[in-house]
């Protein structure tokens, strides 16, 4: 087990959004602008790292039969922290993310990493895993949000990109645009994978 490998796996090979298809609800709902994506991503990184740390520290004390409720309580604690901090310091962002900050509690990525990784590995690796996965999640969110905000609003991070002639493709900031964008990105990644596999078998 190497530190670099554990850190990098969340970026591409086990990317939570494009590969594991976990936590898609906030991805589809809050990727309509890059600002929202960054806010959501940073919240997830914090909760993921913190909950991985605590679960890993407590892994020998948690009775296996009631581990899920305990994980949820741990995660909910950190989500509450994020929720209150964001409401206090970034009220605008908090307002636009709305319910989805609270819904991080039931985000599959966080529960999944607690169950699949943090409860079986030591604290140091659990933190590295949480960081890698969280950054991979944020990165994917920003990619989707960039496409959606550029096409659907003609802006990037609220800065106008195209001239006044451009008429925004509204559908991209609506729900169907999220599905179309995500579908094409996953399709593209699968295509790249097939190609790489085909080249590997040939040589």
């Amino acid at each position: 087990m190497s530190v670099g490998k554990e850190f990098i796996k969340g970026m591409v090979r086990e990317n939570p959004v494009f590969r594991l298809l976990l936590g898609l609800c906030p991805v589809l709902a809050t990727s309509s602008s890059v600002m929202n994506a960054i806010g959501m991503g940073v919240s997830v990184i914090f909760v993921l790292v913190a909950s991985n740390t605590l679960v890993s520290l407590l892994r020998n004390f948690i009775p296996p039969k009631i581990r899920i409720p305990i994980y949820i309580s741990i995660i909910a604690t950190f989500v509450t922290v994020v929720d209150l901090i964001m409401a206090g310091f970034f009220p605008d962002l908090h307002k636009s993310l709305g319910m989805f900050i609270k819904l991080i509690v039931v985000n599959c990525i966080i529960l999944g990493r607690a169950e699949a990784f943090a409860s079986k590995n030591n604290t140091f690796y659990a933190i590295i895993d949480g960081l890698g996965m969280g950054i991979g999640f944020t990165f994917s969110m920003i990619i989707i949000a960039t496409i959606r905000e550029l096409l659907g609003n003609g802006t990037w991070l609220n800065m106008p990109v195209f001239g006044t002639q451009f008429e925004p493709v509204l559908i991209f900031v609506l729900a169907p645009g999220a599905f179309i964008t995500l579908g094409f990105i996953i399709g593209g990644m699968n295509w790249l994978d097939h190609r790489r596999a085909a080249i590997a078998t040939k040589s």
Partner: peptide
């Protein structure tokens, strides 16, 4: 439907 949602 795409056009309808994008440029109503």
């Amino acid at each position: 439907a795409f056009l309808m949602a994008s440029w109503p």
